[in-house]
Write a protein that binds this DNA or RNA. Structure first.
Lengths: 126, 126
DNA sequence: TCAATATTTCAAAAAATATTGAATTATTCT
DNA sequence: AGAATAATTCAATATTTTTTGAAATATTGA
């Protein structure tokens, strides 16, 4: 992952409406929700929802599939996890002990932070 | 974690400057960096940096410690991990198989997503 | 104490985002 | 084909966020 992608993802989740939409879709799971259902559930105008869905879509956090005259949206959870990997890459000044100590503070998350392998970004990484 | 906290965290990371600052501090590890070092490294004016640090601080993503006339900033990585736990809580419409399938898409992150124990938020959770 | 350094606060201007309602596109149903 | 439905695009307005430079605060060292 590169900076621009990570930035789009955080921008996408930095609005209350979009955060609600994404959570709704995460909770919905595989069946997702069509736009109208989302608008009703969250009490957002279709126009405004469309605006916010576009942001989530551009970030890759949701996908759409046309279903007749409906548009069915689904959450892309794995991308969210990749983003954290990007964020925590090359952490702790390369000190594995320090890295382990940090991990200790978030027990559930412990197994996630990779020891030191970190990201595989090439020279173009920003 | 509650919605308001998660929102502050994503807002905090939704600017290129703040994302750079946070990554710099994640990579710096325990010693962190004083404000002036950050400003120089990222070529941001002290005034503007101060503005952005305030956002990161309000979100809890960084901490400060006064050191003479310097202010030393450090990243709070565990909070970032908690945020993802919040985001992926109650996922997949409660279907564990579906949850497992999703996890399969992000191998490194696989161990992070808790099976179904999920968050411990009380009735006030938004 | 005085000058220099580090950082923050404040107020104004500039830029980016969000919201609204009307119009448009595309699909279904009769 | 024509009416109804689902959703998006467009253009205008409102709101929020970011940036800038000057001024203020606090600490250090002469």
């Amino acid at each position: 992952m590169q900076k621009a992608a990570a930035l789009r993802i955080f921008e996408a989740l930095s609005s209350g409406v979009r955060l609600d939409v994404f959570r709704l879709l995460v909770q919905a799971g595989k069946p997702g929700r069509v736009a109208g259902e989302i608008a009703t559930a969250l009490d957002v105008s279709p126009t405004n929802l469309s605006f916010h869905l576009k942001g989530l879509l551009a970030a890759g956090l949701v996908s759409v599939e046309q279903e007749g005259r409906f548009q069915r949206y689904r959450a892309n959870i794995p991308l969210m996890l990749e983003t954290i990997a990007y964020l925590t890459a090359h952490c702790c000044g390369g000190d594995p002990d320090e890295c382990a100590r940090l991990r200790g503070h978030a027990p559930d998350a412990a197994a996630f932070l990779p020891p030191l392998a970190h990201d595989a970004a090439g020279p173009g990484d920003q």
